[in-house]
Deep mutational scan, measured.
Amino acid sequence: MTEYKLVVVGAGGVGKSALTIQLIQNHFVDEYDPTIEDSYRKQVVIDGETCLLDILDTAGQEEYSAMRDQYMRTGEGFLCVFAINNTKSFEDIHHYREQIKRVKDSEDVPMVLVGNKCDLPSRTVDTKQAQDLARSYGIPFIETSAKTRQGVDDAFYTLVREIRKHKEKMSKDGKKKKKKSKTKCVIM
């Protein structure tokens, strides 16, 4: 069974824990209790493949930012979460993405942009803004509501699919490099 290491990042209060708990335990946590770091595991079937999701729910508070490099190193894919009623959390996505790329030393890291709290009427981040940002990053965008469960499975499952595509691409690139290195030079 394939294991996928997913990391949920975003500013404090955007609903990272609520999304994760909704996926794992099928219930909505409405009281806000700032996370330092929590880890969850769940076995699911995605596109006919049974897999184990190892999900790291991270601290959004700035005082825990020193811990970010460590979990970013171990993560295979990242859910970059903002709240649709919090423009600052949307603007912060850029910083999370840049930090992930720096730590992973790669421009090509599996990510999904997630606009959470889409059940709320007080939207300050337009869907088109988020779609445009995701398009500019070359990553999928999904709106979710941890409260109603809308888009929750889709967000995590899409990230797994992005990781699969990335692994497939990397193995193809690896095979191309191996083929090239088999060419021999004969000096007579």
Rank of each mutant, 00 (worst) to 15 (best):
T2C: 09
T2I: 11
T2Y: 13
T2F: 08
E3G: 12
E3S: 10
E3F: 06
Y4H: 14
Y4M: 15
Y4C: 12
Y4T: 08
K5F: 02
K5R: 09
K5H: 05
L6H: 02
L6Q: 04
L6R: 01
L6V: 09
V7W: 09
V7Y: 03
V7P: 02
V8D: 06
V8R: 02
V8Q: 03
V8M: 05
V8H: 02
V9N: 03
V9D: 02
G10S: 13
G10P: 02
G10W: 02
G10F: 01
A11C: 13
A11I: 14
A11H: 11
A11V: 12
A11R: 11
A11Q: 05
G13A: 12
G13R: 07
G13E: 12
G13I: 07
V14D: 12
V14K: 13
V14A: 12
V14W: 11
G15F: 01
G15V: 01
G15D: 01
G15W: 02
K16D: 00
K16S: 11
S17D: 00
A18P: 00
A18Y: 00
A18L: 00
L19F: 05
T20Y: 00
T20L: 03
T20G: 01
I21N: 15
L23T: 15
L23A: 15
L23E: 15
L23Y: 13
L23K: 15
I24T: 06
I24F: 04
Q25M: 06
N26M: 06
N26F: 07
N26Y: 05
N26D: 12
F28M: 03
F28G: 00
F28W: 08
V29H: 11
V29D: 11
V29L: 05
D30T: 15
D30I: 07
D30K: 15
E31W: 12
Y32M: 01
Y32A: 02
Y32D: 01
D33C: 01
P34M: 03
P34I: 03
P34W: 01
T35Y: 00
I36L: 02
I36H: 00
E37C: 02
E37H: 02
E37D: 03
D38M: 00
Y40L: 00
Y40M: 00
Y40N: 00
Y40Q: 00
R41H: 04
R41Q: 05
K42I: 08
K42T: 07
K42W: 05
K42V: 05
Q43N: 12
Q43R: 14
V44S: 12
V45T: 14
V45W: 06
V45C: 11
I46W: 08
D47H: 12
D47S: 10
G48P: 08
G48V: 07
E49C: 06
E49S: 13
T50C: 07
T50E: 12
T50W: 05
T50L: 14
T50V: 13
T50K: 11
C51Y: 11
C51N: 07
L52I: 14
L52D: 09
L53T: 13
L53Y: 14
D54H: 04
D54M: 11
I55C: 13
L56V: 03
L56G: 02
D57C: 00
D57V: 00
D57I: 00
T58H: 00
T58K: 00
G60P: 01
Q61E: 08
Q61G: 08
Q61C: 12
E63T: 07
Y64C: 02
S65I: 10
S65V: 08
A66W: 15
A66C: 13
M67I: 03
M67Q: 03
M67N: 05
R68W: 01
D69Y: 11
Q70Y: 08
R73N: 12
T74Q: 05
T74I: 08
G75H: 07
E76M: 10
G77E: 00
G77V: 05
G77D: 02
G77W: 11
F78P: 02
F78R: 01
L79K: 15
L79D: 01
L79E: 05
V81C: 07
V81D: 01
V81K: 02
F82Y: 08
F82T: 15
F82K: 01
A83W: 02
A83K: 08
A83P: 15
A83Y: 02
I84H: 13
I84D: 14
I84N: 15
I84W: 13
N86H: 03
N86W: 02
K88G: 07
F90V: 11
F90S: 14
D92Y: 04
E98R: 12
E98F: 03
E98Y: 02
I100N: 02
I100M: 15
I100H: 06
I100S: 09
K101V: 13
K101M: 14
R102I: 07
R102S: 08
R102P: 02
V103M: 13
V103H: 04
V103A: 09
V103L: 11
D105T: 03
S106E: 13
S106W: 13
E107T: 15
E107K: 11
D108G: 06
V109L: 05
P110E: 02
P110K: 05
P110F: 02
P110L: 03
M111V: 06
M111W: 04
M111A: 03
M111I: 09
V112S: 01
L113W: 15
L113N: 03
L113V: 12
L113Y: 15
L113E: 02
V114W: 00
V114S: 02
V114R: 00
V114C: 07
G115N: 09
G115P: 12
N116P: 01
N116H: 12
N116I: 05
K117N: 12
K117L: 14
K117D: 12
K117M: 14
C118S: 10
C118L: 11
C118V: 10
C118K: 10
C118D: 12
C118F: 10
D119I: 07
D119T: 14
L120V: 15
L120S: 13
P121L: 08
S122A: 10
R123H: 10
T124Q: 09
T124Y: 09
T124D: 11
T124I: 07
T124N: 08
T124H: 08
V125W: 09
D126H: 08
T127D: 10
T127I: 09
T127R: 05
T127G: 07
K128N: 06
K128D: 07
Q129W: 09
Q129N: 04
Q129A: 09
A130T: 09
A130R: 13
A130E: 08
Q131I: 05
D132R: 05
D132V: 05
D132T: 05
L133K: 10
L133Y: 12
L133R: 08
A134C: 14
R135Y: 15
R135M: 10
R135V: 10
R135T: 09
R135E: 10
S136V: 08
Y137A: 10
Y137H: 09
Y137D: 15
Y137G: 13
G138S: 05
I139T: 12
F141S: 02
F141W: 05
I142V: 10
I142H: 14
S145H: 03
A146F: 00
A146Y: 01
R149G: 06
Q150H: 04
G151T: 09
V152G: 09
D153E: 09
D153T: 07
D154P: 07
D154H: 06
A155S: 11
A155I: 05
A155K: 02
F156H: 12
F156M: 06
F156E: 02
F156T: 09
F156D: 01
Y157I: 08
Y157F: 08
T158A: 13
T158C: 12
T158V: 07
T158M: 13
L159C: 05
L159Q: 03
V160N: 06
V160C: 14
E162C: 03
E162Y: 13
E162S: 06
E162M: 09
I163V: 04
R164Q: 05
R164A: 14
K165V: 13
H166P: 04
H166M: 11
K167W: 11
E168M: 09
E168V: 15
K169G: 13
M170I: 03
M170E: 13
M170L: 05
M170D: 12
K172L: 06
K172H: 09
D173L: 15
D173E: 06
G174S: 06
K175G: 13
K176E: 07
K177N: 04
K178Y: 08
K180S: 02
S181T: 12
K182E: 12
K182P: 13
T183V: 13
T183L: 03
K184T: 03
K184W: 05
C185R: 13
C185A: 13
C185W: 05
C185L: 02
V186W: 05
I187T: 11
I187G: 14
M188I: 05
M188E: 15
M188T: 09
